[in-house]
Amino acid sequence: MDTFRAAGVRLYALSYDEPDALADYATAQDVTFTMLSDPDSKVIESFGILNALIPPEDHPWYGIPFPGTFVIDGEGAITHKFFEHNFAVRPGPEQLLAAALDQEFELPADRSATEGAEVGHVEVDVAFAGDFLPMGLTRQIVATFSVPAGQHLYGPPTPDGLVATAIELDDIDGVLSYDVVAPPTAPLTLSGSGETLQAYNGDVVLRLPVTQNARAMHKDDEGRYVTISGRVRWQACDDVKCFLPESSAFSFRVEAGFPVLGDMGAGEGRVPPMNGAAHFQKMIDRRR
């Protein structure tokens, strides 16, 4: 939250909870962002995102939204939207902050000195952005491709025989990945073959959101680590010819975060008490 404040980005979180429930939650969790109460789901309905799969007579779930996140710029225009089918998955704070600051495709400041331009071929750096992998909240695998002048990398779709720039995750039990975040492409026609391709302009940053579903936590000897492995693929072309497709493997061993559970019961990982059971009873009663 301090990082958001320092970056000049405001954070609002809206739910159908009553203000007193939000107050208890904020106290228990030391919340410093703004929590908004929409007990009649009026704001949720005005956005058109009321969860219509839950009938009105079904207490107490009725009134929740299809959960999601909007990022807006200083003018108030929506610049990004994050909606997943599964509410268990949400974008992590690093991802949201990069979106709010329009820095998703910015090259890392501490990039290694071996730039593609100096060695004449594409250089790739792959990093895991984050210090651990929580359940349901995404972190990102960030691949930075340094591309020499005169060469290009490509996004999908590519014609047969040409490899699109991609991050591929191995099939690892408990590790989930979502749609890659990629910069826009522009059509580029190769003078050699006359083919039109979707090219990235200059150096390329791809970000693959990943998370875990807690099953992974039992797969390692030490119980709480998970290895995320895979490879990046790319193929460069200059104006007249394409180079051979290339790939580079990566592997990161990261700590898997413990699932955070509500406070309505005992158990490891429970959040601090916020009088949840009483608030839940009130929710059951409030529309009777």
Binding site: Y12, L14, S37, F47, P67, F87
Partner: peptide
């Protein structure tokens, strides 16, 4: 909001960019 204050998001953010999360329940 959680303090009982009436918040107009566009007014409250005072020209700053913002992240607005719709979630299920606290």
């Amino acid at each position: 909001d959680q303090t009982g204050r009436l918040v107009d998001v566009h007014e409250d953010r005072d020209g700053q960019p913002a992240v607005v999360v719709f979630y299920r329940s606290a």
